[in-house]
Each structure stands twice: as C-alpha cells, then as structure tokens.
Design a protein around this nucleic acid. Sequence first.
DNA 1: AGGTCGACCTGGCAGC
DNA 2: TGCTGCCAGGTCGACC
Length: 270
Amino acid sequence: MPELPEVETVVRDLKKMIVGQTITDVAIIDRRVIKDRTNRQFKQSLKSKTIKSIARRAKGIIIQFTGGDYLFVHLKMTGQLIYGERQNLKETKVVFTLSDGNYLNYNDQRLFGWLIYTKNLKTIGYIQTAGPEPLGRAFNADFIREAIKRRTVPVKTLLLNQFFVAGIGNIYASEILHRARINPTKPSFKLTDTECERLYEQTVNVLKESIRYRGTSMRNYRDSKGRQGQFMSRIRVYNREGQDCLHCGTKVMRIVQSGRSTFFCSACQK
DNA sequence: AGGTCGACCTGGCAGC
DNA sequence: TGCTGCCAGGTCGACC
C-alpha cells in the first residue's frame, strides 16, 4: 500500500493513541512478517515495553520504547496498523495488546511487510541507505540538479529509487510528473533547470496535499482507524488509462517502466 | 557502477 | 461457475 503520505497519516494518528502505553501481550498469528527473531524472542523483547515515541522515515514506521530500543515496521504493499478492538481477519498477522485495553493489529494480505525489533536503528539497512526526505531541507532543486548528473534512468524510475529520495512510490511518481509537466521516460540527466525546479515544487505540493487528504486508498490502504484516505479525488493520472487528461482532454496513457505501470498525458508531458 | 528483472505472497477481476 | 492470466501503494539480490 503505502507511500509517504499514507505512512505519515498512520504515524500522526498513532502518536495520539499509543504513545505512553505499554505492550502487555503479543500474539503472533503468522510469523513470516517477523524478521530476525524467533516468536519467543520477539514476544519477550516487546512484552512490558512502554512506547516513548513514533516516527516515520521514508516509508518506514519507527516505534521507540522508553528503554531506547525499537520496533521498526514496514507496511510494504498491503500492511495495516489498526488500533482499537482485536481483529480476527484472515489478514491479521500480529496483535499487540495495549495497557489501555485496546489492541494494535498488524494486518497484511500479501505478507511482504516487516516487523523488526532492534536495539540499534543502525542495524536496519533500509533506514541507513534511504535518501533525503522530500519534505525536508536537504531536498530541493539544487539537490535534484546535482543528483541527476550522469543518471541515464528515466526520471520516473529515479523518483521510485529510495536511495535518491525517500518515500515516493508508484502512485505519487506519476502524479508528481504530471503536475510538473515532465515526460516520465525522459532520461534523468536531460532534465532542464526549470524542470528540476518544477519537479521539486510539485513533489512537495503533491505529497503535502495528499497528507492533508490523509493519503490515497486505491485498494488496501487504511489508516490506523481502518478508514480510507481521500486523495483519490485529487488523482490526475494514476490508474486512469484511456480516460481524459483533466488538464487537456487527451487520453491518459499507461506504459511499463522497470516492470511497473506509469500513467501520463503525452500532450501535457513532453 | 548503473540499470533491469524476478522473487517474495495473496486475492480481485476480466475474459473465456 | 470455473479456470487462467494479469494486476496490485515495495524492496532486494542476482544478473548484465
């Protein structure tokens, strides 16, 4: 499911609901989402831990405990963290019992997600190698201009590369490029200075707007209360193959780049 | 070194 | 109503 806006929405909501609570029990229904530890190690590591803070890095969720240790969660395509009653769905894989009597359910239809307990975030390569946050200071037009040099990959593929910039996925890559009026197949190093400016501006615009709308629910994404995001009403090209471009009326095209669908308007995005 | 592709999984949907 | 094939918000390791 989730790209930066969806993960950010989950983190902001969970902050209000679970910080300060203690995990009193852990039920593992399917251990394939748990990395590095046996069931017993995972349970013992987390039982009686009090949640100090929760934060997002790239598309990952970092839950820190008062002892200075962490639970790192990556939702991948279909992961969900749902707070409230205990769930017993086919996709419910791990359930944390909380000290307020509620539960934090980890659901994951496709089992791609990760739950990693660690004492040291440096052990998590995903965090260590992620590029700059697109809504942070290090990401700007100058950074893009510098980073695209000698990169021959299509700009769409570069946006998906988490080493380049963290948090953009397949929906927002298409949406950003449409709003920036950049053709997704353009080799990155051929972007002009003004295109770099527009790419920066629209990356920030799209991600911030989507956070305001609480993310996009194309399929499986739900927030921490099980609700859908609302950004679908703002989507301009993603999953709209054959429909009219909302800007010029040309039919939206779908192509495949690096094995993933890209949607764009060939008239608006030269 | 940079770029591409398959593997990891389950399930929904279109077409026959 | 099957069945088959294709598709899905991600990441990584093996390959060229």
